[in-house]
Write a protein that binds this DNA or RNA. Structure first.
Length: 311
DNA sequence: TCCTCTCCTTGCTT
DNA sequence: AAAGCAAGGAGAG
C-alpha cells in the first residue's frame, strides 16, 4: 500500500460521485471501505484518511504490486492536483450562490479523465440518470473489457474502441443502452479506424476540437463540452445541461436574446450562456460549472412541505 | 435559415 | 400501478 499526500482540498467521495466519472464504486476490502476504479487500464483502490486541515489530506492507495509509482503519477493528474483550488475558491466565493455551493461541496475537484471512456460515459448521459449511466458502463466492461482483479475485487477495465466495434450496435442494445447504442458503436468505429483522432483533440484549440466532436452522431454541444472539459484540457468549455441552465436563468437572470429573425428565443443558446460564463467566471468557468451543476442538483428544496435532497 | 416540437430506450421514483 | 422523469440529440415541419 502507498500513501499519496494531496496538499490540496479533496473530498474523495464527493469528487467520485459528482457525475463526471461513472466507474467508481465503494467496496469492502479487508473490513475497510474503499473506492474501486480505474486509471486507464490500471485498477486502483482508494481510501481517504481522516481529514483535518486541507494540507493533511492523504490518500491510501492500493494497486498492483510494481505499479505504485505510475499509479501515484496518474492520480496527481487524474485529480488535477496542480490546480490551486483554494485560490479558485477565493475568487468563486465572491458570488453568493457559488459561496453556498462551495461550502456544501468543499473538496469536489474537476477530474482529468481518459478521453475514450469519458466520451462513452457522456454519450450515455442523454435523457438518462447517473445511476443508470454507471450500470451501462459496467455492463460494457463486464461484457467486453479485460479482467483486472485487485485485492479480490473482480472488475474489468473499460473496453477499447476496437472491442466495442467488434461488439457492434446490436450487442450494445442488448446491454440496454437503448437509442445510445448506435452513437457508441459509431464512435467506437471512428476512433478504432483512426478517422476520428480523439487523443489529438487535446492539442487542438477549443473551437476546432468542439466542431470535430459535434460531427459525431449523438454528440451535441453539451456532450462535446463535457468531454472537452473533463478529458481534453479545455477550461473554456462550459457544458449547459438542464441543471446549469436553470441555475444560470434563475440565479443570474440570464435571458435569451433575439433570434436572427428579430423574435425573442424561448431559451438562451449554449453560445450565449457560454459567453456569459466566460465573462463572469473567467479562468474559473470550469469549476464554476461543476459547482453550479452539483450545487443545483443537490440543493434542498421544499416539496409538499417536506425537505428533501436529490441524490 | 432558424426555431420548436416530438420521439428515442430503460429503469427508478412517486 | 401507471405515469413521470432522467448531464441530450436529431429530424420534421
Amino acid at each position: 500500500m502507498t500513501t499519496l499526500l494531496v496538499g490540496q482540498p479533496l473530498d474523495l467521495a464527493r469528487t467520485l460521485q459528482s457525475g463526471q466519472a461513472f466507474r467508481w464504486r465503494p467496496v469492502a476490502v479487508d473490513g475497510g471501505e474503499w473506492w474501486h476504479g480505474f486509471l486507464g487500464d490500471e485498477p486502483v483502490l482508494l481510501q481517504q484518511r481522516a481529514q483535518r486541515a486541507s494540507k493533511d489530506v492523504a490518500l491510501d492507495v492500493r494497486c498492483r504490486s510494481g505499479a505504485e509509482d505510475e499509479v501515484v503519477r496518474r492520480l496527481r493528474s487524474y485529480f488535477r492536483l496542480g490546480d490551486d483550488l483554494p485560490a479558485t475558491y477565493r475568487r468563486l466565493r465572491r458570488d453568493p450562490h457559488l459561496a453556498d455551493a462551495v461550502a456544501r461541496l468543499h473538496g469536489m475537484r474537476l477530474l482529468r479523465q481518459e478521453p475514450w471512456e469519458c466520451l462513452v460515459g457522456f454519450l450515455c448521459s442523454g435523457h438518462n440518470n447517473v445511476k443508470r449511466i454507471m450500470l451501462m458502463m459496467e455492463r460494457m466492461a463486464d461484457a467486453y473489457g479485460t479482467p483486472a482483479p485487485l485485492y479480490g475485487v473482480a472488475r474489468n477495465a473499460f473496453p477499447t474502441p476496437e472491442r466495442l466495434t467488434k461488439a457492434g450496435e446490436r450487442a450494445l442494445r442488448g446491454l440496454r443502452l437503448g437509442f445510445r447504442a448506435a452513437a457508441v458503436a459509431h464512435a467506437a468505429q471512428a476512433v478504432a479506424v483512426g478517422s476520428f483522432p480523439l487523443a489529438a483533440l487535446r492539442e487542438w484549440p477549443y473551437e476546432r476540437a468542439k466542431a470535430a466532436l459535434v460531427e459525431l452522431p449523438g454528440v451535441g454541444e453539451k456532450i462535446a463540452d463535457c468531454v472537452l472539459l473533463c478529458s481534453l484540457e479545455k477550461p473554456e468549455a462550459f457544458p449547459v445541461d438542464r441543471w446549469v441552465r436553470r441555475a444560470v436563468e434563475e440565479w443570474y437572470g440570464v435571458k435569451p436574446g433575439m433570434g436572427r429573425n428579430g423574435k425573442p428565443r424561448k431559451e438562451a443558446t449554449h453560445e450565449e450562456i457560454c459567453a456569459w460564463a466566460r465573462a463572469r467566471f473567467g479562468r474559473d468557468a470550469g469549476y464554476a460549472n461543476q459547482y453550479l451543476f452539483q450545487g443545483r442538483r443537490t440543493e434542498e428544496r421544499e416539496v409538499g412541505g417536506m425537505r428533501r435532497v436529490e441524490t
